[in-house]
């Protein structure tokens, strides 16, 4: 994330500035869709040679056109916009993640490319222009027709299927980014000593450990 973007994020996310600052720093270090490497250029996770070869082959390819990437970016930020808690899909690098994952999972390529095209053609028919040239209101008028599977019109079914896919890929990319992990509040992935469910949580649910569990299960001080 560049400095300008960071400043914008801070301005918007006053409530959670600390989190966002930290997240932005990480996001800058760990670019989405790119294998993370340490300062010495070494891949940070264990890879065997076949995996490295496949990765190098994938990143040498480009799948989406610049127009398609622009559309993915707009859609991603409609699905996951910045709010009081965290940044947006594009803040978290979701478009780059989607570019990578469709190369990694080729079965996603036709549904994504075709779905984007379906959206463009539908927008052209209804608004007489491309999606990116629409106003925000016009964009949402289109999206509202495909974002709600149970009330969408039957003729919009393909658009619904595409938007479900786009929503799921956006969630995958966002909630696995530093910003998204902080947003969802996952507390683990660090050394810990498990002494059971916290007392206040047990009380909240009216649960208690049995005497035998308290006596025989491991406790750490």
């Amino acid at each position: 994330m560049d400095r300008r973007q960071s400043l914008k994020t801070i301005a918007v996310g006053a409530l959670a500035t600390g989190v966002l600052l930290e997240s932005c720093k990480d996001a800058g270090d760990k670019q989405a869709g790119v294998q993370s490497k340490d300062d010495k250029g070494k891949i940070t996770i264990d890879r065997h040679p076949d995996e490295v070869a496949r990765y190098n082959k994938l990143i040498a390819e480009t799948f989406f056109t610049p127009d398609e990437m622009a559309l993915i970016t707009i859609l991603g930020d409609i699905i996951i916009p910045r709010d009081e808690v965290s940044g947006s899909a594009s803040d978290a690098g979701v478009p780059d993640f989607i570019e990578f994952i469709v190369k990694d999972k080729p079965e996603l390529q036709v549904p994504m490319r075709g779905g984007l095209r379906w959206l463009e053609v539908t927008t052209l028919k209804q608004k007489g222009k491309s999606f990116k040239d629409c106003t925000e209101t016009e964009r949402l008028e289109i999206i509202d027709q495909i974002a709600y599977p149970e009330k969408a019109k039957p003729e919009m079914a393909q658009g619904v299927a595409f938007f479900n896919l786009m929503r799921n890929l956006t969630a995958s990319g966002f909630y696995t980014s530093p910003i998204g992990v902080a947003d969802i509040g996952y507390q683990g992935n660090k050394p810990n000593k498990w002494n059971g469910v916290p007392d206040d949580v047990l009380q909240q649910y009216g649960l208690a450990y049995t005497e035998r569990e308290l006596k025989e299960c491991v406790t750490y001080t």
């Binding site: 790119v34 993370s36 076949d50 993640f97 990578f100 696995t176 660090k190």
Partner: peptide, 23 residues
């Protein structure tokens, strides 16, 4: 100890932990 994936964050995988035929 040398082939480490423990304590890595999801974003350290470009596919965010998705499976591959290698894993």
């Amino acid at each position: 100890r040398t082939n480490v994936t423990q304590f890595k964050n999801p974003w350290e995988s470009p596919r965010r932990g998705a499976s591959t035929k290698f894993r």
